[in-house]
Computed example of a mutant assay.
Amino acid sequence: MILKRLSIILLLIFSSTSFAFGEEVNNNEHQINFFTGNFDFSDDKQKAILVGFQHQNENLNRDTFLGNVSPITGGFVTENSAAYIYTGIEWNVDMGGLTFTPSFAPGLYHEGDGKDLGHVLEFKSEVQLSYAASDKTSFGVSYNHVSNASLGDKNPGANSYMFNFIRNF
């Protein structure tokens, strides 16, 4: 029920216009990525549906020899009440009509009734491929691995895939 409510709230945010308090917001200054998918799909006993969001501020991006680098902040929650919040960086590599986006983000994990990943500090490595349907909207697919880099007594990791709805505003 919580996941359904969170999904509805996030969809309402995405469907809002580009006006805030009667003033026009600069185009494409911020990017919100709403995603849903399957947490730890490779473990039949622990897999769970997840929903999440990620924010990127385009004003903080930098062009480098690795592509366009920018900070990200986000989080997700699973149907088993596991939660992960993170902040890190992503690279946006324009490939014509597609954008390839690898990212890395350390974060804090709470297992809830979900999988014990072995430590509160976890690291998320992700790759995403997205298609720009318009200058403000993209759709993508992504895969990530969350692991504690052997900081804890155990390090089972979790592999997830997601479907992404990306909105620039």
Rank of each mutant, 00 (worst) to 15 (best):
Q56K: 10
S138P: 07
S138H: 07
Q54G: 04
D44E: 13
G75S: 12
L12E: 04
S125K: 06
G114R: 06
E126T: 14
Q31S: 08
T101I: 13
D43Y: 00
D40C: 05
N80A: 10
D44L: 07
E126G: 04
D40H: 04
E122K: 04
A149H: 07
F104W: 09
N155A: 03
T73N: 03
R167K: 14
A82Y: 07
P106Y: 08
G107T: 08
P156Y: 07
E79W: 01
N80D: 13
S138M: 09
N28I: 00
H110N: 12
S134H: 04
K136Q: 12
L3A: 02
G74A: 15
R167A: 02
E29F: 01
N164V: 00
S42L: 11
F41S: 11
N59S: 10
F100L: 15
P106Q: 08
V69Y: 00
F41W: 12
S18V: 02
S42Y: 01
I2M: 13
A132Y: 00
V69C: 08
W91F: 08
N61Y: 01
I8F: 04
T17S: 15
M1N: 12
G74I: 08
D113M: 05
E126W: 01
Q54H: 02
S18C: 15
I89P: 01
Q56A: 09
N144Y: 10
E23G: 01
F165V: 11
I9S: 14
F14M: 12
G74E: 03
A48S: 15
T101W: 00
R62P: 02
N92G: 05
F100H: 00
G74T: 07
V141E: 00
L117H: 09
A48G: 10
F169I: 14
H30I: 06
S16R: 11
S130Q: 12
Y161N: 05
I72R: 07
Q31K: 12
I85A: 12
N26Q: 07
